[in-house]
């Protein structure tokens, strides 16, 4: 169980995340939605302890998450990666095994096998010797998906995984989400636009600095909530969800 309690993040004097609390149980696929600049990515980074917290606690199975990062797989936004970095597909995926391997050692045969399976799962094993810069956006995202799988984590945090990917990769991501869900993992996914927020998620967190709504699609995507999060500039189509 992932418990986030009263999370507050200040970024250069601005409130980026304002007192957000929620609790996720194993087997849940949860989408974080909200307008640009709502603090969605910041929230993920704060959960991982990548940025300093003003206040708040993040616990995983009743222990501080930052002491058990081996349990977490995190896929950052595309823009965080330099795609011209001289590295091949296989070596990117291998990084998943770095904590299992430890300092001063090379990757074990077992780790290599796990990485091979993960790359095969996403259809990228044939391209293992290719530099990542030569791949399409979707293929690049699949390499990172393989990396997350090979980490054998229990908590998965994806930051806008659907940006710049093709239909095939999108379908594959949802397939993998389903698989991980059935294995009892927890998935927290930052969405890019409301369009994706369809049947694939069990639950949504709608945020704009604060947590505006938390619940199923019907509960969260309502005219009132969307207006609260996005302001008056969004046209809300009645057909998308029940009006409250």
């Amino acid at each position: 169980m992932l418990e986030v309690k009263h999370l507050v993040v200040n970024y250069r004097g601005l409130m980026a995340v304002d007192n957000i609390s929620f609790c996720l149980v194993p087997g849940e696929v949860v989408g974080i939605i909200g307008p640009n600049g709502a603090g969605k990515s910041t929230l993920l980074m704060a959960i991982l302890g990548l940025i300093p917290l003003e206040k708040g606690i993040v616990q995983f199975h009743s222990r501080t998450l930052s002491t058990q990062l081996k349990q977490v797989a995190y896929i950052p936004q595309r823009v965080q990666i330099d795609w011209d970095y001289p590295i091949t597909v296989e070596n990117v995926a291998m990084m998943a095994r770095i904590r299992h391997t430890g300092l001063f050692r090379s990757y074990s045969r077992q780790s290599k096998l796990i990485v091979k399976n993960a790359l095969e799962r996403v259809g990228m094993w044939e391209l293992k010797h290719h530099p990542i810069g030569e791949l399409s956006g979707g293929q690049q995202q699949r390499v990172f998906l393989a990396q997350a799988l090979a980490q054998e984590a229990n908590l998965f945090l994806f930051d806008e995984p659907f940006v710049g990917v093709d239909k095939k990769t999108e379908a594959m991501l949802f397939d993998v989400f389903d698989e991980l869900k059935s294995e009892g993992k927890i998935l927290l996914v930052v969405g890019h636009e409301l369009r994706e927020t369809t049947r694939e998620y069990d639950r949504f967190l709608l945020i704009n600095k604060t947590l505006i709504a938390d619940g199923t699609r019907q509960e969260v995507i309502t005219a009132t909530n969307i207006q609260k999060a996005y302001g008056d500039n969004v046209i809300f189509l009645e057909g998308n969800a029940k009006n409250d």
């Binding site: 990062l69 995190y74 950052p76 330099d82 990084m95 980490q151």
Partner: peptide, 20 residues
């Protein structure tokens, strides 16, 4: 000695920090 860690860190600093 630290090649694999340095490779990870320089390629994906956030990811490296995220795995601790």
């Amino acid at each position: 000695l630290f090649y694999k860690e340095l490779l990870f860190y320089t390629f994906n600093p956030l990811g490296a920090q995220a795995v601790g």
